[in-house]
Simulated scan of single mutants.
Amino acid sequence: MPPFTDFTRPITLTGPQARLEPLSHDHLEGLIDATRDGELWKLWYTPVPAPERMAAEIDRRLGLRDAGSMHPFTVLDAGGRVAGMTTFMNIDAVNRRVEIGSTWTRAACQRSGLNTQSKLLLLTDAFERLGCIAVEFRTHRLNQQSRRAIERLGAQLDGILRSHLRMPDGTLRDTCVYSITATEWPTVKTHLQWQLDKPRSA
């Protein structure tokens, strides 16, 4: 195994509404349970591992970590229940850039504060520990739920890569590329903390 860099060294990130732990096979059963909540693997516009593929997906992400291109996390909710997965991916240590992606969340935790808390933890780590100049987010042009969530973070649309990727079902994905830059981070951080602190409607 190659030595870890600052970008890939296992680290746990903790906030009031979410805890991000280094991905491991110890999380397998919890991740299988999480993906069954909403049968997320049936969503055609975003790749989520099916229960029988979860162990292989953990292996894939840990392999990318060892290659230096991904830092994978398991996301837990405030009660310690496994809620999903997220990563720093497409790591560019030379230019101090990362993408936050390969993210999915069990249905019961969607539209809660968990996603905002997770992104605040990841962005704080990226900008304040790793010294990133920009953080990217990418999603399918037709994944309106994901696009709205990214835009609520304060990320700006850089552009759309047309016919960018071939999906598992053979369709072509137009990829929306968003980013937050280091100069924008202080304002975005204040905005995210305000979102977490304000009362949520029932």
Rank of each mutant, 00 (worst) to 15 (best):
M1A: 12
P2W: 03
P2R: 13
P3W: 06
P3A: 14
D6N: 10
F7V: 00
F7R: 03
R9Y: 06
P10G: 09
T12W: 05
T12A: 14
P16V: 00
A18S: 09
R19S: 11
L20E: 05
E21Y: 04
E21S: 12
P22L: 11
H25Q: 04
L31V: 11
L31Y: 11
L31N: 09
I32W: 02
I32S: 05
D37W: 04
D37Q: 02
G38P: 10
W41D: 08
W41R: 03
Y45R: 11
T46V: 14
P47N: 07
P49I: 07
P49V: 01
P49D: 05
P51R: 03
E52V: 06
R53E: 14
M54K: 03
A56D: 14
A56L: 13
D59E: 13
R60H: 10
G63I: 00
G63W: 00
R65C: 07
A67K: 11
M70H: 09
M70C: 15
P72H: 06
P72F: 07
F73N: 02
D77T: 07
A78G: 14
G79Y: 06
A83P: 01
A83K: 12
G84Y: 06
T86K: 03
T87D: 12
T87G: 03
N90G: 12
N90V: 07
D92Y: 04
A93T: 11
N95K: 11
N95W: 08
R96H: 11
V98L: 12
G101F: 09
S102F: 14
W104R: 08
T105S: 11
R106E: 11
Q110P: 09
R111S: 10
S112Q: 07
G113T: 02
L114F: 06
T116R: 00
L120K: 00
L120A: 01
L120R: 01
L123G: 07
T124I: 04
D125R: 14
D125Y: 14
E128I: 02
R129H: 13
L130H: 10
I133D: 08
A134F: 07
V135Y: 04
E136Y: 15
F137V: 08
R141I: 06
L142V: 06
I150Y: 08
R152Y: 00
G159Y: 12
G159K: 10
G159D: 09
L161P: 03
L161N: 04
R162E: 08
S163Y: 07
M167C: 15
M167W: 06
G170M: 05
L172H: 09
C176G: 01
I180D: 00
I180W: 08
A182D: 15
P186F: 15
P186I: 14
K189C: 13
H191L: 13
H191G: 08
W194T: 15
Q195R: 13
D197F: 02
P199F: 00
S201D: 02
